[in-house]
Amino acid sequence: MQDIDWSDFQVFLALAQSGRTGDAANLLGVDATTVSRRLKRLETGLAVALFERGRDGHQLTEAGEELLEQVSTMARAAAKIRDGAEAGEGLSGTLRISVSEGFGSWFLARHIPDLADAHPALTIDLVASSGFLNPSRREADIAVMLSRPRSGQLIARKLSDYALSLYATQDYLDRAGTPQRSEDLITGHRLIGYVPELVYAPELVYLDEIHPGLRATLRSSSINAQHRLIARGAGLGVLPRFIGDADPALVPLLPQRSILRSFWIVTHADTNSLARVRAGTEWLIDVVAKHRSVLLSR
């Protein structure tokens, strides 16, 4: 067996977790050619094929599965060493938190400076977008998701429920009338909501819960854009209460038709015990517990 560069195992681990050369390259901060070259060097050194290449990416062979178990153990051991160094010197490195656009911009953004103040040497990435980074592929250290993941080496726990309601401006209601029942929304009102083909989680499908068959005719993939449309009097739509109740221009409607959803906090099993991940997780749980009334409201 040829001598093996131990850093090649990091390439193997990244590819095993992401499944695609380009994704592994992004995780490692190198180009895809480097990933392919170093994987080939590792396979040559071990004299085994670690992946089967297919249309859907790289799938582990039996030898790859066995190596993954060993390399994951090595990664956890390295994480513990880093953890000990962090504990002695204070938290450092980068903590990447992936959250939905609305939760990130309307809730976490106002509280996350407290985490930064507590750990000044820590770089914090708050990725608030229409979609989530994947903890399984190490795209994020912590993800706050709308449902519990069903696969992957992940640790998940329920963070909190949150409530949503239907909102409009008083100006819109003066023009179009105030709906008293969900049936009143069928005609005479413009509904604002998501673009159906671009909904990244089934938990974001709301209108059928207000009344079966309702359809938005003014649509956006962005909850912040939807809020601005509603606030401009363009129509009525469903918003999380931590957004809708924070805007004094909006009037909540049909309280009997409120909607409940949940946030889940998700980390990877291999990095969950890292000091910075543990600190971020504990901070998230604490800040949500202190401000749960904002998420549920009324």
Rank of each mutant, 00 (worst) to 15 (best):
L27C: 10
A24K: 07
T217M: 04
N26C: 15
S105Q: 09
V287I: 13
H268D: 13
T94W: 03
R228W: 01
V205L: 15
A79P: 03
L126I: 11
T217Q: 07
A78S: 05
L91I: 01
M145P: 01
Q70P: 02
F51K: 11
Q256N: 14
S273M: 13
T267M: 03
R215D: 07
S72C: 10
L95N: 00
E62P: 11
R150G: 06
S18Q: 11
T187I: 15
A201M: 11
R41A: 11
D270S: 03
T217K: 04
L28W: 11
I285N: 09
L218G: 00
Q170P: 05
R137I: 09
T169I: 11
S147I: 05
T44P: 09
L173H: 02
A176W: 13
V11A: 00
Q256R: 15
R292A: 10
R76M: 01
G188Y: 03
F107I: 08
G244P: 02
S92Q: 01
P248Y: 09
P212W: 12
A168G: 05
W106Q: 15
I210L: 02
L236G: 05
L115T: 12
P252W: 04
G104V: 02
L154K: 06
I155W: 06
R150Y: 07
H291P: 09
D31G: 08
Y206G: 01
A231K: 07
L159N: 05
F51H: 10
L126Y: 00
F263S: 00
L159T: 02
R157Y: 02
H211D: 13
V199A: 07
L39C: 10
L108R: 10
S18Y: 00
S222H: 02
L50I: 01
K158H: 11
S92I: 05
T73K: 15
R292L: 13
P120A: 15
E139S: 07
R110Q: 15
S105Y: 02
L218V: 12
Q70V: 13
A14N: 08
A275D: 10
V127R: 05
D161I: 09
L191A: 09
V251S: 08
M74H: 06
E65T: 03
D171Y: 14
D286H: 05
T21K: 01
A216L: 06
G237Q: 08
L60Q: 04
L39F: 01
R96Q: 06
L13W: 00
V199Q: 07
